[in-house]
């Protein structure tokens, strides 16, 4: 890659296959996930072995990517299956809801609907 003097390089990452100084990683080595990380006004590509909290990994022939969980979800398996909710929401059957079904109570500590 072209090293531009005075520009911090986003390329010194183990998982990067191709990269540029302004965009960081452009593609990842096999099995790594591409995560687009926002740092203030910048957004750079980072190659990770697993996605950070709040994101889930999706594999595809072109590229493995990290995708954001739903907004009410702190961590998830995929878009439709949450594993931990944001404060004020309660987990029931993989979904985050503001209220629990009848017969279940809201647990603020676990952020889940509990019997």
């Amino acid at each position: 890659h072209k090293q531009i003097p005075g520009v911090s390089s986003g390329c010194q990452q183990g998982g990067c296959l191709t990269c540029s100084d302004y965009n960081g990683c452009l593609s990842c080595k096999p099995r790594f996930f591409m995560h687009l990380e926002r740092i203030g006004m910048k957004q750079i590509g980072v190659c990770m072995t697993s996605c950070p909290p709040g994101f889930y990994g999706t594999r595809s022939p072109e590229r493995n990517t990290c995708t954001k969980c739903r907004s009410e979800c702190d961590s998830c398996f995929n878009k439709n299956f949450c594993t931990r909710c944001r404060a004020g929401f309660y987990l029931h059957l993989g979904k985050c809801q503001e209220n629990c079904p009848e017969g279940l109570a809201r647990s603020d500590t676990q952020r889940e609907c509990v019997s």
Binding site: Y22, N23, M34, R38, M41, Q43, G45, K68, K79
Partner: peptide
């Protein structure tokens, strides 16, 4: 407006609600 960078791999699908 304020300048905000997007990676070329972003703006790919509407689900990324950043």
């Amino acid at each position: 407006g304020k300048l905000m960078q997007y990676h070329p791999l972003s703006l790919c699908n509407t689900s990324e609600d950043e």
